[in-house]
Design a protein around this nucleic acid. Structure first.
Lengths: 122, 122
DNA sequence: TACGAATATATCGGTTTCCGATATATCTGA
DNA sequence: TCAGATATATCGGAAACCGATATATTCGTA
């Protein structure tokens, strides 16, 4: 169960939200599920990140009251904070993915067994 | 010019040392060169990392006195600290590469446009 | 021979990130 | 009734980050 660092957390959360609006708890479940239990984003990683994304204008938010079945209409139900990817968020996700791919390619130069430092034979 | 985080720094430095012993300054130049100027590992990133690798037993070290041509044999020349990848370091590099590939594959699940959540059609 | 740039190693310290523990409250199922 | 799941959020010590700084040698060149 790997904890994600901010860069990867951002990429993964934006990516989940690209499929449609969601809320913190559901996002964390989606991440665990899609990664088949390999990734984990705990509350202390999730909520500060979502707040940051909101401040950056990458997501918009709204509260939803989740009432229990047959509950007193005056009672306070559980609250859900929904996050929706904004247009800016979509663009940022595309940029993040591009940056991620470039980083991957660059790291591969060091990690893959291909020769380096010499000219490629023709 | 991207600064590397510790995970990537470790991978890249061990990878450079896998080609043979080197020293801090040369390693930083090799990283800049092989990444075609995209990666940078500054002294404040490089030396604490090398010290850590040494403490972990992943590298062994030795000092070399670099005397100027025709210099006074008694004079203090510039010093170079050589780093050599140990057997343990080689194993650790292999583990790091494996972990990196797994992380890549996992992130791709979120980043690649393939469908998810449903069964793959046969 | 004077001087700037390159070579070479290393630490300092303020800012940011990380993440386990904690807090609070509702809802579901046995 | 009560444990476990749902749901959001902060706290605070530890670790990481990285620009600035320190120190000294060597090379190129004007």
């Amino acid at each position: 169960m790997l904890n994600l660092k901010q860069d990867h957390s951002t990429l993964v959360v934006l990516s989940v939200l690209a499929d449609g609006p969601s809320y913190g708890y559901a996002i964390s479940k989606a991440i665990a599920s899609r990664s088949e239990g390999h990734f984990q984003l705990t509350p202390s990683g999730m909520y500060p990140l979502l707040t940051k994304l909101e401040k950056q204008g990458l997501v918009t938010t709204s509260w939803e009251e989740v009432k229990a079945e047959g509950a007193d209409p005056d009672a306070n139900g559980r609250k859900r904070k929904w996050y929706t990817l904004s247009a800016k968020g979509h663009k940022q996700l595309a940029r993040h993915i591009e940056a991620h791919r470039q980083m991957q390619a660059l790291i591969d130069v060091f990690v893959s067994p291909a020769e380096h430092g010499g000219a490629t034979p023709t």
